[in-house]
């Protein structure tokens, strides 16, 4: 029970987001209107994806340092949950874009980079599946994971700042423009929505990891 405090916290946060987030006062903006509430769902997805991918890379590095199969399982499961959150982010973004920009896909630079990120991690799983040998799969997978991460993240952090975009924030901060939100809303997003979804991501991954550990029990002890 002591260890599960963060799961309770996560549940409470997400309960608040799904109820309070829908009911609280939000600033009324042109075009955005009530869809601004999507910042409690769409924006945290990306934060969660990034947190999980960063974790995945850390475990890949750990694996290369001391070749323990358990780290490979961690890396893979974090990447998998991250991919799911990335997909959700893309879907929530497309729905939002349909009502604000008029179409689900408008070749915005951030949409493109999000799609690239997902393709890269999808390729990670294709690569893993194409190598039958366990140790080799783990090693090659880890190398690709680190390489892809190092290529991807500078570009998705830097390029959107160099070009113009439909997303708020424009050429400055690409995440969220503080001018669009009032204080309580920003507080809810940064303190409750984003940590809440990130916790959920780690929760899902930890369950998957435990499942994997049971499945591969005899492999891990040799």
């Amino acid at each position: 029970m002591k260890k599960s405090w963060w799961k309770i916290l996560c549940t409470l946060m997400l309960l608040f987001i799904t109820t309070g987030g829908m009911l609280m006062q939000v600033p009324r903006k042109k075009i955005l209107n009530e869809t601004i509430r999507n910042s409690f769902f769409h924006v945290p997805m990306w934060f969660c994806m990034m947190a999980l991918f960063i974790c995945s890379v850390i475990y890949s590095i750990k694996y290369l340092r001391n070749q323990k199969l358990i780290y490979d399982i961690y890396a893979k499961e974090y990447a998998r949950t991250g991919l799911v959150f990335g997909l959700l982010g893309l879907v929530t973004g497309s729905i939002w874009a349909t009502y604000t920009w008029g179409q689900p896909w408008s070749n915005d630079i951030k949409q493109v980079s999000a799609a690239i990120a997902l393709l890269i991690y999808a390729a990670y799983f294709v690569l893993r599946n194409s190598i039958p040998d366990l140790d080799k799969r783990a090693r090659v997978g880890a190398v690709y994971n680190i390489f892809a991460f190092a290529m991807l993240f500078p570009t998705i952090w830097i390029i959107p700042r160099l070009t113009e975009s439909l997303h708020p924030g424009g050429t400055g901060n690409p995440v969220a423009d503080p001018r669009n939100m009032d204080a309580p809303m920003a507080l809810v997003m940064w303190l409750i929505a984003i940590p809440g979804w990130i916790l959920l991501g780690f929760w899902i991954s930890s369950i998957n990891i435990r499942l994997r550990k049971i499945e591969d029990k005899n492999l891990l002890h040799v």
Binding site: I116, L119, I120, A123, V126, L127, A148, M151, T155, I159
Partner: peptide
């Protein structure tokens, strides 16, 4: 599969 997504930004 691996190369095209990685090279697109560049």
């Amino acid at each position: 599969i691996m190369g095209f997504p990685i090279i697109i930004p560049q």
